[in-house]
Design a protein around this nucleic acid. Sequence first.
DNA 1: TTTATCATGAGGTACGTGCCTCATGACCTT
DNA 2: AAGGTCATGAGGCACGTACCTCATGATAAA
Lengths: 347, 347
Amino acid sequence: MNQTSSKRRATVHDVARTAGVSLATVDRVLNSRAGVRAATAEKVEAAIALIGFQRDLSASLLARARDLRLTFIIPDGTNEFMTSLAEAVARRAEQALTDRMHIQTLRIAALNPDALAQGLDRLDAQSCDCAIIVAGEEPSVLAAVDSATRRGVAVMTLVSDLPGSLRRCFIGIDNVAAGRTAASLLGRFLPMGGKIAIVAGSLHLRDHSDRLEGFRACLGAEFAGLELIGPVEGHDERPQTERIVAELLGEHPDLAGLYNLGAGNAGLVGALESSGRAGNIRVIAHELTGPTRRGLQSGAIDVVLDQNPDGEIREAIAAARNLAINANAHVVTSPSEIGIFLRDNLR
Amino acid sequence: MNQTSSKRRATVHDVARTAGVSLATVDRVLNSRAGVRAATAEKVEAAIALIGFQRDLSASLLARARDLRLTFIIPDGTNEFMTSLAEAVARRAEQALTDRMHIQTLRIAALNPDALAQGLDRLDAQSCDCAIIVAGEEPSVLAAVDSATRRGVAVMTLVSDLPGSLRRCFIGIDNVAAGRTAASLLGRFLPMGGKIAIVAGSLHLRDHSDRLEGFRACLGAEFAGLELIGPVEGHDERPQTERIVAELLGEHPDLAGLYNLGAGNAGLVGALESSGRAGNIRVIAHELTGPTRRGLQSGAIDVVLDQNPDGEIREAIAAARNLAINANAHVVTSPSEIGIFLRDNLR
DNA sequence: TTTATCATGAGGTACGTGCCTCATGACCTT
DNA sequence: AAGGTCATGAGGCACGTACCTCATGATAAA
């Protein structure tokens, strides 16, 4: 049974006493100011490690009379998932004020790596402690991430990762697992076999290709009785997706299942409903947004795999606070949970 | 586009100036100390509302040189879900120290309302700001919750709610929705119909009866081709559950699906595996624990519906902080997300 | 040796809030 | 009118950290 331990939390005073130096020196080390010999700095570091000192972030922010400043950079445009991400940020921003955090959102033209890079370039350590970005893997973006990191602006990736960069951590789901999950559900939904079509946004997007990989692997290994059609690309846009889904439906009157691993779900639902076959085909899509929600309600979509924007934003904010406490800590973030929604557990 | 607003956050000084009173008076109102006329207090309240003052929790805790103290009361025993809840609390407790929160866990004999009530009775406002409890609906518990609330210890319910009490909020999933979700999945898994058995822990537990209600409603409305057997009760214990599942399997050689809405999943998996029919029956269970995880891996269980202990604990802590900022605020908490796990998206 | 440079210590103020003491003046009671 | 009660104001100290100035002593450069 955990009893209330009355052990006092270690403070800078304790560090000073343990290291045998003055408060001023501890302060210089903690805030990496000049004027400390390497040997002295090491004594201080050792004392910190010994007594397990952890900077009190709140007191620190209070003393500086400033907030922790986070900047979210989220693609602008018609993608409903990005909109809901931005909304989740906004919701969280209010409460965060209470914890001395100032959260700013930048919407930047989707699929425009240079615009994103410029946005990152404009951030400086004086006005932003941490940037959280949703970005594709492009050279100019990678360069901007590394440059921002070196300027003292920590960068975290959201939804889609940038493994080769200096980003401090990634917040998002395991998209390979998401693809496997879709396959595993569809496989169970169709115990007698049949044709399954795959629709993607663009296979140049890492999350999309990861989902495809997982989907194929699981289907091949566990549900050999299913025949795969596609993938065909709808570029995450409503009209294109509607057109290609309509074509698929026309070409395959016996289509049994459909997996849309990208966006453009308004088009997907539109095509299904005007074909008159909504409800007769098992359909799995991604991201709980207006169109997918309506699809679930009407029965056109069976299952939606989701990223839970609110959870990811919370996670991102928590990670940013940890970074602020210990700038060179290795931040560990486990992939967030994949949300699975049916009509019956809509939130 | 949100630009960085340089508006300063309102402080007690601003409240004093706006209300035309002194700092001391504002302080007396804020901390409900005596010696303020009703009319004056109202002026202060009005000023607070006008300028949107929010107490800075961190500074407040700092000034009092103390932590926010939370006590989790979680049933002790063999129930693996409760263990994982307690583990989630422990994980969170470390990080919480950074935010000046001290988290204590009390494990109390499961299904023992009087022990729980005594535990609550022992908490006083001097040593505990908020209690978060997992409790069944019993008169002695309800009384203890109300008494604790009146003593100044806020109480929140976790997993299972106590609607009639003075508890400040409930953190948990919508169990009726969980039941509906199970039915909806099983229905899609068995498009050709068949027999489905229901196993419960005890229908006197509110969460169990809620799940049953949702399951039946959805099945009746959408999947009329399925025949329902049970519910039979296994009292959340391994041996009893194993026995009754073995009996069910024996009596129904054509069983197509099984829904265990309670615990005791080690017994469920054991019975399925020793019958040799694991994998041939679609099985849905609750709570991602050791046994259900193994069941998913081996294929004995198809889907696990989960409460996500970590998420619920985080939610509870956030709600407790809000309560601390504004003791008489109406805390709104939406039901947490129902986690749905297959072998393919295990975390 | 003298001077410059540097590492370090001592101590102050500030941040927003809680909590304390003491003084002042208004009102009520008799 | 004298004494009492009560609401309120003024101000200080504390919490843990940041950041500043100034003094002191050590070491290196001239």
